[in-house]
Computed example of a mutant assay.
Amino acid sequence: MTYEGTDADVGLAAGRVAYAAGGRLIVDGITLAPRPGSTLGLLGPNGSGKSTLLRLLSGVLAPASGVVTLDGTPLPRVGRRETARRLAVVDQHASTQVELTVREVVALGRVPHRRPWSASTAADERAVQEALDRTALADRAGQSWHTLSGGERQRAHIARALAQAPRELLLDEPTNHLDIQHQLDLLNLIASLPVTTVIALHDLNLAAMFCDEILVLKEGRAYAHGTPAEVITEPLIADVYGVRARVTPPADPADPLDHPSVRFLRSPPLPGPTAS
């Protein structure tokens, strides 16, 4: 089932966006409009266009054709400052050379809400502390960001996005470098937020557990869209990822907490040398 989009006048939407680099179409005519407050997962192999699509949605890249809108208004007309207040982004490889504490990194999320050169307010401090608490980083607040592990750095950037208090949240592989417990904790947190979330993931089982809808990309195009039970199938996995898998469907498709589960299969062994 291909994705045709929904009401583009509410929230974040993209209409037939395309982007090319090096003479190659990386994103080719994608349309999406996640339901406000829902979690939309982007799936697809490396090079399928997931990260580029997220950059188009955030306004970091301008589409060669098509349009990205907030409440029906194209992003260039919304403006950078208002977009930054509305929309938070967590990149896959966010870094900084500046010596900052964890609290200072998280406090960067409040910058779009303050006038230039103005001091932080009590509301800013509360937002930062709540974000630290929700990501289990309160005890690291005074620590240098550079001394954190890869997973802790990722959680700090999640906290920065939460402190921003966005209505839309874009995340590119946020579970990278996280152990299983923190992957589940983080995605439970993201799924519970009253925001519209678009999240690129590699793990099909995590996508099935936490996403309301899934959009599968293949070679820059929308290959399939629907609920996890509709999208995550053995033929799709074989065609998009080129691997064999067994998919166990949800026992109760009407239960929103039930979901399909994927078990990948080893490829058959290569034939041995024939006897001479």
Rank of each mutant, 00 (worst) to 15 (best):
E4V: 14
T6S: 15
A8T: 15
V10S: 12
V17N: 08
A20G: 14
A21R: 08
G23L: 01
G23P: 00
G23H: 01
R24Y: 00
I26W: 04
V27D: 11
L32A: 11
R35P: 01
G37Y: 09
G41W: 07
G47T: 09
S48V: 02
T52P: 05
L53G: 00
L54M: 04
G59A: 12
A64E: 11
A64K: 07
V67I: 12
L70A: 14
L70K: 04
G72P: 02
T73Q: 13
L75K: 06
R81H: 03
E82K: 11
L87E: 06
D91T: 08
A94L: 03
A94M: 08
S95T: 10
S95E: 00
T96V: 15
L100R: 09
R103E: 15
R110A: 03
P112C: 11
H113S: 14
R114W: 11
R115G: 11
R115F: 06
P116E: 07
S118E: 08
T121A: 05
A123M: 13
E125G: 09
A127E: 03
E130A: 13
A131C: 09
L132I: 13
L132A: 07
T135N: 06
A138N: 00
G142K: 05
L148E: 08
E152S: 02
Q154F: 10
A156Q: 03
A156G: 03
A156W: 06
L162G: 00
A163W: 12
Q164N: 11
L170K: 08
E173K: 00
P174A: 06
Q181Y: 07
Q183P: 10
N188Q: 13
L189A: 02
A191T: 13
L193W: 11
T196M: 12
A200I: 09
L201G: 12
L206N: 09
E213A: 13
I214V: 15
L215P: 09
G220F: 08
Y223L: 10
H225I: 10
G226L: 13
A229L: 10
V231C: 00
Y241V: 03
V243Y: 04
R244P: 02
R246D: 08
P250M: 02
D252K: 01
D252L: 05
P253L: 10
D255W: 08
D258N: 06
S261I: 06
R263G: 02
L265M: 11
R266E: 15
S267K: 07
P271N: 00
P273C: 06
T274H: 07
T274D: 10
